[in-house]
Simulated assay, not measured.
Amino acid sequence: MIQLDALLCDCEHPTIAPSSAPIVEWVLEDEELLGDREPLLTSERPVVIDQLAAFGVETLRLTGTSGLDAVDELIERADDHGLETTLRTSGQQLDQSRLESLADSGLTRVSVLVEGLSTPREQHTSSDAIDAALETLRAADDTDLATELRFPLQAESVTDMEEIYDLAALLSADRFRLTHVPEPELDEEQRRRAVRRLADLARDAHERGTHLETVLSGGIDAGYVAEYAQDRLEEACSTDVREALRERLGTAPSPPVAKLGPAGRVYPGPFWDRYALGSVRDRPFGSIWTDESNPLLERLRHEEAGLPDRCRGCQFGDICSGGSRGRALAVHDDPFEPDPVCYVDKEAAAGGSPAESTAD
């Protein structure tokens, strides 16, 4: 995670220190996920929380929770182990009473998804999902929960970003998170322009004294953020920004995010739906994640072996790590091809020193 407001406004290191264990994104429901046709039983799920805690996982994201069945028990179990838990909603609306109940169970943060504001009204499902997300944020304002608005950058909604950012602040959200998804209709200049504008918004908000934590989700943004700092900030501050990015992303576990499917299958990251490392039904999460006999995991952990040729000479390799190997797999059918959403100026980035940090 790249915390723009801390980096660019105060020239400080990100406030969240990296953990030696990955963040775990647990997808509780997903009918399309290959190999996950027999979901974990309600009685099996608490055992998984125990496994994650035993391995040292500190952050848990719960997604795919349309029914929210038994989610309180999971959250309470995670809280007992000291895990910071985020509930990521996508389309469902939670009222204040439900949010307070989740907070009482130990939930740390509720995160809503807003994909855009220009959806035609006849597309009722999309419009209803947007309304549900915004109403959930309104309801959460009167609770002790931290809140987050997630905005995936897409061609049809990129022009909505600034308005959605303002909405997040208006609804008292604590965090605005921009994420990159493989989107062929969105070119590199559009991505650069969006991230540049987001950085400007974060700095403007800081100058006005209005705080909205503004984050980018992955290392793929690190190169451009370093470029932005070099162009817009004083030299000493720009140097601090790059060093903070290198320390924050370069010391993250590799891969930094593990995905856990509904049936307990473990994947190397959010975009790795076709490749499972094993199942927590067969062996503990920690044994799966540290399996030295798995050639894919070994290659991902060895920086240069896991990077595409183009990334090895890139001047941002030590802070970007080649971006997401999962996105490369999803688009190129090969995890060791370049990240399809890389948007740094390729000519300007060429000629740097080889990468030394890990890939997500």
Results as ranks from 00 to 15, higher is better:
174 D>F: 04
143 T>G: 10
268 P>F: 01
291 D>E: 03
87 L>Y: 00
302 H>L: 12
348 A>W: 15
289 W>A: 03
61 R>D: 05
42 T>Q: 15
323 G>T: 06
52 L>V: 07
245 L>S: 00
254 S>W: 12
288 I>L: 12
192 R>W: 09
344 V>H: 05
143 T>C: 07
246 R>K: 05
31 E>R: 13
302 H>K: 12
227 E>N: 09
154 Q>D: 04
54 A>L: 08
89 T>I: 10
95 D>C: 06
317 G>E: 02
5 D>G: 04
292 E>H: 12
173 A>C: 01
35 G>M: 02
148 E>D: 10
127 S>C: 15
149 L>Y: 00
9 C>E: 09
61 R>K: 09
187 D>R: 07
58 E>F: 09
291 D>L: 00
83 L>K: 03
266 V>P: 05
113 L>R: 11
99 L>R: 03
203 R>C: 06
319 I>S: 00
207 E>W: 06
293 S>W: 00
355 A>S: 07
202 A>M: 01
45 R>G: 06
37 R>P: 09
152 P>T: 12
77 R>D: 05
298 E>A: 12
179 T>P: 08
193 R>S: 14
305 A>I: 11
134 L>Q: 10
125 T>M: 14
96 Q>G: 09
174 D>K: 01
268 P>G: 06
349 A>T: 06
93 Q>W: 01
161 M>E: 13
38 E>I: 13
131 D>Q: 15
327 R>I: 02
291 D>F: 02
240 D>Y: 10
147 T>W: 09
320 C>E: 03
216 L>Y: 03
180 H>E: 14
